[in-house]
Amino acid sequence: MAGRRLVVEADGGSRGNPGPAGYGAVVRDGDTGRIIAQAAEFIGHATNNVAEYKGLIAGLKAAREIDPDASVEVRMDSKLVVEQMSGRWKIKHPDMQPLAAEARTVLPRGQVEYTWIPRERNKDADRLANEAMDAGKAGRAWEAKPLVGAAAEPRAAGPVAEPAEPAPEKAVPKAGWAAPADLGTPTTFVLLRHGETPLTPEKRFSGSGGSDPALSEKGRWQAERAAAALAAAGSVQAVVSSPMRRTRETAETVAARLGLEVRYEDGLREVDFGAWEGLTFAEVQERHPDDLDAWLASPKARPTGSSESFTTLTHRAGVARDKILARYPGRTVLVVSHVSPIKTLVRLALGAPPDSMYRMELSAASLCAVQYYADGNASVRLLNDTGHLR
């Protein structure tokens, strides 16, 4: 079943550029077009572009609060913001770079697309931005008005007309076919699942809320084999790892062979499986059958006693991915993690639904590879490779 679709319309303005500035954003239901959330704020002395980016961030955060797993289309009349966030234009201005980086962390990249619309199609966000600036001039905070009457009326949320501005000379092909040279060198994630622990052969749930086991003797051997294979390939330029013990030990084994330092990223840790930690699937099915059925049926369901769902993981892993992409553009990064985060990164790269995770096999110490291009496309190059363990 397709997930929920939301449309964010955002705008920002400055009276003087730079001058007194504010932003506005609305979130529409993607099927009915009805406004279901709105945000606006006076931000003081700033430029139009800063205000527009802040409006974008506010709109994305409002959409995330409604449904963190929804697909989101952002519509703005700022060609600059749309092109930069789509990856087609470089972000050179130092004021824009941190704002764009923040915008990319709100929702996973694969859930958001950007569309340029003419100004007359962005009247609601523009109205809110002006309300915020008026409020700031009067020395008061902007207050949201109830969504009644014309402001809440449905409006077409389907495909919009092509912009009046000239289209690019060449359409950007999907990365899996023939990425053009002007996109530059892609960033490559080599995804390594940690080696075995005593719980792995028994297929017991082992998340971030359990005993945090160390590698077994076989797991240490697997880490050494992975290290030898990656050293022979000679392509890895950085190592980033989940901070859990089994991933730390795996990452440090490989990094020592490669002569690299390990950077730890909390967003790469495994899901907290709550009361299921240390149990087999059969034991969970016997003790918590209703919770297990709900968990298998919906990415928003949580294991018994856990505060974390696969929807939560999707956001966390997407933020971690974007932080690594921002730190290591155009480089090959070894990412050492666990079953669920790695499967999540692969499915986001494919644009696959959440239940696709149950159709992936991921062996201990296996390798996957994903390449990320500047236009936002991704290409899965390898899945569950265990050739180095034979």
Rank of each mutant, 00 (worst) to 15 (best):
4 R>P: 07
8 V>R: 03
11 D>Y: 08
19 G>N: 09
24 G>P: 03
27 V>R: 03
27 V>A: 06
31 D>F: 10
33 G>E: 07
35 I>E: 06
38 Q>P: 04
45 H>P: 06
49 N>P: 00
50 V>R: 01
51 A>D: 02
51 A>K: 00
60 L>Y: 05
61 K>F: 04
69 D>T: 14
80 L>Q: 05
82 V>A: 03
86 S>Q: 08
88 R>N: 06
89 W>L: 14
96 M>N: 12
99 L>E: 02
99 L>W: 00
99 L>N: 00
100 A>L: 15
102 E>Q: 09
103 A>V: 03
103 A>K: 02
115 T>H: 08
120 E>K: 15
121 R>L: 12
124 D>F: 14
132 A>C: 01
135 A>C: 02
138 A>V: 03
140 R>T: 15
142 W>Q: 06
143 E>L: 12
144 A>E: 14
144 A>Y: 13
146 P>Y: 09
146 P>K: 14
147 L>R: 01
154 P>K: 13
158 G>C: 12
161 A>W: 08
168 P>G: 02
168 P>H: 03
177 W>I: 09
178 A>W: 08
188 T>P: 03
190 V>T: 02
194 H>F: 13
197 T>A: 06
198 P>K: 04
200 T>N: 07
202 E>Q: 15
202 E>V: 13
205 F>N: 10
214 A>N: 09
218 K>F: 09
231 A>Y: 10
240 V>E: 01
245 R>S: 06
245 R>E: 02
250 T>R: 05
250 T>V: 15
259 G>C: 11
270 E>D: 14
277 E>P: 01
281 F>P: 01
282 A>D: 15
288 H>E: 04
293 D>I: 15
298 S>D: 08
304 T>V: 08
310 F>W: 13
316 R>H: 10
323 K>H: 08
326 A>H: 10
331 R>N: 09
345 L>K: 03
349 A>H: 05
353 P>F: 05
375 D>E: 07
375 D>I: 08
376 G>P: 02
378 A>C: 13
383 L>Q: 05
